[in-house]
Computed example of a mutant assay.
Amino acid sequence: MAKIPATRIRTEYKEGVLNNRLIAGNPLRKEVLASTAGHTIELAHFAPHQRFALDLWRRNEFGTTAWRVIVGRTIAPGEYGQKLPGVHPAAVPLMDVSGATRARAALRWLRDKSDEIDELTEAELVSADMFFNNAPMKRIRTYITAQGGA
């Protein structure tokens, strides 16, 4: 039986400092690489052409320094993809939103869609990407408030 080449996604949690987590997708398997009090590293293995969503957050003593939400599609051998944080070898980004307020809004949008990530069309994801990356900040804040956030 031939082995299915898998895209590997590394997630990491470090209490109060880092939270790179998989928020949607159905990996073939997951493994814990390291786990100590307040620090966990996991590896999720995905078959080709599967969708996933990542929430990548980092802070320092002054607050949030980076926040990014990515929805991607894994690739098969021979296909081209883009290098994404924690994703090996690469994937096709379908939605990529950066910045604390914009990422928070994208997370709220994905919150109710995480179970149906495979049913979302690429047009819906591109439209969401365009909105969350390009809408005026006032409109993004209004969206967050309307979704029940602060």
Rank of each mutant, 00 (worst) to 15 (best):
R59F: 09
Y143R: 01
P85V: 10
R73W: 08
K30P: 00
I75T: 12
A100Y: 08
D96H: 09
T101L: 12
G81M: 08
F46I: 07
I23G: 03
W57M: 09
A135N: 05
E79F: 11
T40N: 05
V87L: 04
T142S: 12
A47E: 15
E79R: 12
T36V: 15
I140P: 00
A76H: 09
G16D: 02
A34I: 09
A66D: 15
D129C: 04
V17S: 12
A105D: 07
N134Y: 09
A123L: 08
K14Y: 08
V92T: 14
S114G: 06
I144G: 00
R139D: 12
I75N: 10
E124C: 01
A135G: 02
T142P: 00
S114M: 14
G38S: 03
E31L: 05
H88L: 14
N134V: 11
K30D: 13
H45T: 05
K30A: 14
E119F: 03
K83H: 03
P85K: 11
E79H: 09
M137D: 14
Y80H: 13
A100H: 06
K138D: 15
F131W: 13
S98H: 08
I75W: 07
V97A: 08
G149H: 01
M137I: 15
D129F: 07
L120E: 01
A47H: 14
A53Y: 02
G38V: 06
L43W: 03
G99Y: 08
K138Q: 14
W67K: 13
G72L: 10
I9D: 03
E31Y: 00
F132E: 10
K83E: 10
N26L: 11
